[in-house]
Design a protein around this nucleic acid. Structure first.
Lengths: 102, 102
DNA sequence: CTTACATTTGGTCAAATGGCAAAATAACCA
DNA sequence: TGGTTATTTTGCCATTTGACCAAATGTAAG
């Protein structure tokens, strides 16, 4: 098993949680402050913080401390295109199911 | 939290294990028999079977039973481009580290 | 009915998740 | 300067989920 495969699997694992993937989607338009995430999700501060740490350690995001706040941004923007590709597949599957019902 | 995000996260979670990602990489060139995977990895064949089930339930692969054998193939070939994108990023990071050492 | 190929089930151990409290860090203000 | 507040991260703990091996259970072929 190649070491490179393990590193990549770790990146996918980081994306493999609804909250974390949601965070990545939020970062599509640019950097965001941690506080902005917390406002929109009804989980504890510490939970968001831990999810961000997972993404950070996998190398998916990077942090930038400015004043009291910490801003996160996408380190692998090309991952957004994978999200689009999955979207297309999922849409096709739904379309296919509708066709079967006819 | 959108339902769509959960479905996508589940796909990434399926890819988030070295053995499963390796399987997906093996399927890049086309369908493969389960027995081919078992030969190349030194884990129990029940473990491989379980990993295949995870990929199947996430919708990443599909199975085709022919005779005594079962063939698996990629249901989302576009995921391969995400792998390429990550490769590029990782290569840049390594290059960057080399540059820092100079 | 035996062999070959896969999946499923059961049990055990490791890892991930999430909440709360406490600790760090930086700004702010008297 | 010293104390207070705002923003995040860390530690600790309970619960859930995941991984792996081994044994048992399917199927299809000969």
């Amino acid at each position: 098993m190649k070491e490179r495969t393990k590193v990549k699997a770790n990146i996918f694992k980081a994306l493999g949680h609804p909250t974390r993937l949601w965070i990545v989607e939020q970062l599509a338009d640019g950097e965001k402050c941690v506080c902005e995430f917390v406002e929109e999700v009804n989980v504890d501060f510490s939970t968001i913080s831990k999810h961000l740490a997972v993404l950070r350690h996998a190398g998916v995001v990077s942090m930038d401390k400015r004043g009291k706040q910490i801003f996160y941004s996408l380190k692998m923007p090309c991952l957004l295109s994978s999200l689009d590709c999955i979207d297309v597949v999922l849409n096709n599957q739904i379309q296919h199911q509708i066709t079967l019902m006819d």
